[in-house]
Design a protein around this nucleic acid. Structure first.
Length: 135
DNA sequence: GCCAACGTTGGC
DNA sequence: GCCAACGTTGGC
């Protein structure tokens, strides 16, 4: 199983929206690097849900419920999306400053390339974030 | 509100 | 095919 981090501005699509919807099509990704990651996603992979902008924190865990398929919102170009479902919120959201300050997470893509909207996360990083979130 | 980082576009 | 200019994103 692989682990990922998906980024969204709360104003655009928030974690609470995902919880309310149960699951959603993760559309609108128009970035080559992110597309590679989308295509590598398998059903059952776990995804950290990160809010950029106001709060800048990892707030919940989602999972892939449908692997990459053509993005219906793409007018042109070979873009894909996946379906994500909410799994559970983190007991304590992990803010970006905490991630940055933690040596175990210094290689996270979130730290080094925060603009990438779909990022790979190692199992060690994933587990560490969960540990931080547990308090 | 500013600026750094990154991606994309367009002229050559 | 290179690179400058520009637009966008996101952290501060």
């Amino acid at each position: 199983m692989n682990h990922w981090l998906a980024k969204s501005e709360p104003e655009t699509y928030s974690w609470s929206q995902l919880v309310q919807d149960g699951q959603t099509a993760w559309t609108g990704v128009r970035n080559f690097q992110a597309r590679i990651n989308l295509r590598a996603m398998k059903v059952g992979d776990q995804v950290l849900f990160y809010h950029s902008g106001e709060t800048k924190d990892i707030v919940g865990i989602a999972k892939v419920v449908k692997a990459a398929y053509p993005d219906p919102t793409a007018k042109e170009g070979d873009w894909v999306c996946v379906d994500l479902a909410a799994v559970k919120p983190l007991p304590n959201p992990v803010i970006l400053a905490t991630v940055k300050a933690d040596k175990a997470l210094k290689d996270m893509v979130l730290v080094n390339n925060s603009r990438l909207s779909v990022q790979p996360v190692t199992k060690a990083q994933f587990d560490h974030v969960l540990k931080l979130a547990a308090g």
